[in-house]
Design a protein around this nucleic acid. Sequence first.
DNA 1: TTGACAAGTGACCTTTCGTTCACTATAATA
DNA 2: TATTATAGTGAACGAAAGGTCACTTGTCAA
Lengths: 197, 197
Amino acid sequence: MAKDTKERILTAALEMFSQKGYEGTNIRELSASLGLVKSGIYKHFESKEEIWNALLDRMIAYYGERFGSPEHLPPVPDSPEKFIDMTMRMADLTIHDEQIVKTRKVLTLEQFRDDRARKLATKHFLTGLTEMFTHIFAGMMNKGLLRRDDPAMLAFAYSTPISALIHLCDREPEKTEDAIRRIEAFSRHFIAAYGVK
Amino acid sequence: MAKDTKERILTAALEMFSQKGYEGTNIRELSASLGLVKSGIYKHFESKEEIWNALLDRMIAYYGERFGSPEHLPPVPDSPEKFIDMTMRMADLTIHDEQIVKTRKVLTLEQFRDDRARKLATKHFLTGLTEMFTHIFAGMMNKGLLRRDDPAMLAFAYSTPISALIHLCDREPEKTEDAIRRIEAFSRHFIAAYGVK
DNA sequence: TTGACAAGTGACCTTTCGTTCACTATAATA
DNA sequence: TATTATAGTGAACGAAAGGTCACTTGTCAA
């Protein structure tokens, strides 16, 4: 039982960093949560900072694989109802997927301290969703589902309110159900305002 | 040189907490930034945690004074152009006022650790602006400046994109100019979509 | 002038931090 | 079977953390 220890350390580090931040996390506790004694960690990483950097590497790579390339863009929905479905599926995933939630929390906590975290935070919190919806809205306009307008502006106007509610879920998980309802209500309102009648 | 030391400590604490977070801040450095030696601080506060709580008290009180009561609501603008002016003045203040910026950063960093910070963060980042614009939009609908619609939904759709750009400024200050331009562009787009022609 | 008190100092305490190191157990390789 | 690399242990380290305390200084009221 060995070779995956490095992975297990990173997983535990994501968990702790997302709850207590980098400074608030200590190696003893981190090792203990893996059933190790603290010095054991140093067989796999040279320092706490190296753990942090490896974790960021993983988060950046994961983001690239998952959202980075055009072929991962979702298909353009061909009805308003399917558009709302897609939004709700995406929201559900991003709110409930533990790894994604923890990644967002870590980026929230470390965005002012680490430059790579800063950049990745902007992608997660702003540009990522906006770019995705820019593509979708351009497609929907071509299909006549949406009024002709600046797709990037619409994408910004659509994704940032949803993003705000996702942050709310991260901060106050007990409001998750309400937030999901509000995402759907907002989505329908948006279609009512910009959809082609 | 004496009685205001408590205030100076809180000011310095806001500065440091906003940059390094609570855990990342140490009392020696904090005192040094005031020209004190660390034990001097303990003449004014019993512990680091008491400084934190006092700072939160101040932030909560300040928020209450400034945004908490109905009489502080801005007047309902009586033209689209004045509405945009008001938005831009507010954005400019909230992006450039150092105390407000530091408060947002502290709340960002400590929202998962401290319950009062959690609640205040939600006010700062979501409900505060939304409530304000709900009032303004209801007024503008009455004046015939805005299409009749759910004012709370419009306020949510209007304030959260602006909030996202404010967060961007906190995170990447070099993008401030661009963000302010985008706030204005969004504001005009919003009026074009929902304003009465 | 003196006494009292608040403000600030510097040495010191304990705890906890990240890190090191000599050692052991294990399991695959030669 | 002997060897060797790998993973994990436990004691110890120096540095830095938060906090205490006896002491000095400066200010103002009595």
